[in-house]
């Protein structure tokens, strides 16, 4: 059973705010979901190497050449706030 307190801790780690109602709902839903996921606990996986990606890891080298893809102006275009060539955040200190 996942408590509302655990939900608040997880929310803090995930940089999310949860209201009391959400904490209550998530606690119930995550409890049900993780109860189900718990089924894999009984499987024997001793000595099995974890599979992190299905790709054939064939590393290759490309030539070390500088290419200009985007301009600073283009990349700053989507910033909610900017100052010159910098992203601006609200004063937080």
């Amino acid at each position: 059973m996942i408590s509302q307190e655990t939900i608040r801790h997880i929310a803090k780690l995930a940089r999310l705010e949860v209201t009391d109602a959400e904490a209550n709902e998530f606690a119930a839903q995550l409890s049900a979901v993780f109860d189900h996921f718990q089924e894999i606990a009984q499987l024997d996986t001793a000595g099995v190497e974890p599979m992190i990606t299905p790709s054939e890891i064939a590393l290759y080298l490309r030539s070390d050449q500088v290419e200009r893809q985007e301009t600073v102006e283009d990349l700053l275009e989507n910033a909610p706030e900017k100052s010159g060539h910098l992203f601006k955040v609200p004063p937080v200190v």
Binding site: T6, R15, Q29, F34
Partner: peptide
């Protein structure tokens, strides 16, 4: 920002993964 911007299912999955 994240709480206002993400929908419920996305928040739920971020919570599940973080857990």
């Amino acid at each position: 920002t994240r709480s206002e911007g993400f929908g419920t299912e996305v928040k739920r999955r971020i919570m599940m993964g973080t857990y």
